[in-house]
Amino acid sequence: MFEARLASSATFKKVLDAIKDLLNEASFDCSDAGIQLQAMDNSHVSLVSLNLKSDGFEKYRCDRNLTMGMNLASLSKVFRCSGSDDTVTIKAQDDADTVTFMFEAKKQEKISDYEMKLMNLDQEHLGIPETEFSCIIKLPSGEFARIVRDLSQFGESIVISCTKEGVKFSTQGDIGTGNVKLAQTNNFDKEDQSVIIDMQEPVSLTFSCEYLNSFTKATPLSNQVTLSLCDNVPLVVEYQIPDLGHLKYYLAPKIEE
C-alpha cells in the first residue's frame, strides 16, 4: 500500500508544470525515503531529477517500493481538477495498475477523486557522478527566467561565463548580440534576492536556449535557483522546493565541432 498526503496540491501542480515540457511520461519511484523521478527528455540532451522527501508530506506510507509510470499530460488533466487550496492524497495498492488522487477542500466541503491508469515504462536510471564544480551561482529564479527569455529572442544558445567579478550571459544571432552581466550582491540579509558566486576557477560554457527556457518553468517553485558549472560536465540548474525537496535539471553543454 502506498499513500502520500500533501498539504498543497498546488505545489505538486507546479512540479508537474516544471517537467511536462521536457517529459511526455515518467516513472515516479516511491520508497520509504519519498518520491523520486529521474528521466531524460526525448532527445537525451537533458535530465530531470526530482526528489520529494517523505517527511515533507503530511502523511506518508510506503509498505513496498513502487514504481508508477505516468503519462504527464494525463496527470496534468487530473491536477487541473484540483482547487488551489486543496490537499491531495495519492494512493496505490501494491502491484496496482492504477493510482488514485483525492483532492480535499480545506473545510472538507468538497472531496473529489480521480483514478488514473499507470503505464509500464522502460525507464533507465543513470548514475550521476559527484562533481567538484568550478562555479556555483545562486541568483533569484525570476531574474534567471528573465535573462533566458530576453536572450532567447536573439540566438539559439547562451554562453554562461563566470569569473570572480560576476556572471555573464551572452548570445548572438542574425540580428546581433546580447549580453547580461550580474555582479555579486552584498545583500546577505535577503539571500533569495542576492547573486552569490562561489568560484574555484573561471568557466565559460554554451547551452541551448530552448532547454534553459524549459527549466525556468520551475520558477514558481522557488525564489532562488542555483547554477553549477564545470568544464566537460552538464550544467545543473537546481530549484529547492521549500520543506519538500528539490528539482534538478542537467543539461549537456554544446561543444565546438
Binding site: H44, P234, Y250, A252, K254, E257
Partner: peptide
Amino acid sequence: VRHQKTIKDYFKTK
C-alpha cells in the same frame, strides 16, 4: 559549429 552532446555522453546507465 557547436554540436549538442547528449546526457549519455556524461552519465552512464546504472
